[in-house]
Computed example of a mutant assay.
Amino acid sequence: MSYKIAIAEYQAEYVVKKSRFIARLLPVRNREEVNAAVAKARADYPDARHHCWAYLLGPPADARGAGMNDDGEPAGTAGRPILNVLQHGHLGDVLVIVVRYFGGIKLGAGGLVRAYSAATREAVEAAPCRQREQLACWRARGDFACEQPLRHWLDQHGGYLDSVCYGEQVQLDLRAPAAQAETLAALCAAHRISLEELI
């Protein structure tokens, strides 16, 4: 499925009743990158009251992974509105963290939903993006030494590692641009990795 992805981190700010909502949008490929980005936002804005977020992995209308966090705001007033904007937007493989500085005037539940939604929408609509290449799914199996070259190849070719299973061999389920099928097959042949395309 074809969809757009952000090509760089982007930040937008929305102010209402003296409260600042700083929306940081960035491309992510997995939950580890989400966790690292949220930790960095907390470090960058340590004095903010809330660091609320939501992410989508995969296309916006059919994500294979999604998550959200209200970070102390009333339940459903921050993470859910951020996620709703992402699900109805044009970007996939995306994380939005909205950092809130309280301005002294309470917004109420409805006001919070509107503010978090508006901040997210501003970031989504203005972020630089490009079309993601069509991805295909493969399953690779080999000895444990094959994992590192596959991970490196995925990083270099815009691919993703969906899961790793360790047994007598290592099994890696991955997604990569369909146009790179020949180079992936060549890498696997060179490292004696069995490769099958998943439907």
Rank of each mutant, 00 (worst) to 15 (best):
E9I: 04
S117F: 01
E168P: 06
C129L: 04
L86P: 01
F21K: 00
P149F: 08
A12Q: 10
H90I: 13
A178M: 13
R151E: 14
Y101Q: 12
P46Q: 00
T183W: 06
R31A: 15
K18S: 14
Y166F: 13
L107E: 06
A43T: 09
L26D: 05
I105N: 08
L112Y: 09
H157L: 14
V96F: 07
I82W: 01
L83M: 11
V38R: 07
Q148M: 15
V34G: 00
P27S: 08
D70G: 08
L112W: 01
A118I: 05
R20I: 08
Y10P: 01
A176W: 01
V99A: 03
D143K: 01
L112Q: 09
F144I: 11
F102L: 09
E73M: 06
G89K: 03
S117C: 08
E197N: 04
R42P: 01
R80E: 14
G158S: 11
L154Q: 14
E197K: 15
A127I: 12
R141D: 08
Q131T: 10
S2H: 13
T183Y: 00
K4R: 13
T120P: 08
H51N: 12
A12F: 05
M68V: 03
R175C: 13
H152V: 15
I199A: 15
A43C: 11
H51T: 07
K18C: 05
D143M: 05
Q11Y: 01
W138H: 05
Y101I: 11
R100Y: 06
Q87G: 14
K40G: 03
M1R: 12
C165E: 13
G79H: 04
C129D: 12
M68F: 10
V15L: 08
W138K: 00
A145L: 05
T183C: 05
V170E: 04
I199R: 13
Q171H: 04
P27C: 10
C129V: 03
V16A: 03
Q148E: 13
A118L: 07
R130I: 07
Q148H: 13
A36P: 02
C165D: 12
H51P: 07
A181H: 02
L107D: 06
A54H: 02
G110D: 14
E73W: 06
G167C: 02
V94C: 00
I5R: 01
W138F: 15
S19R: 00
Y3N: 08
S2N: 14
Y10C: 11
A190M: 10
R100H: 10
M68Y: 06
M68S: 10
A123I: 10
G110H: 12
S163T: 06
E13Q: 15
G158D: 14
G89T: 10
A181N: 07
A181T: 12
A186M: 05
A61D: 14
A136W: 01
C188Q: 03
V15D: 09
K106D: 13
S163F: 04
L135G: 00
R42Q: 09
G108A: 11
Y45R: 01
S117I: 00
D71C: 10
Q180M: 07
L57H: 09
L26T: 12
A186R: 11
D71S: 15
L95G: 02
Y166E: 07
V99H: 00
E197A: 15
L198Q: 12
L150D: 09
Y10G: 06
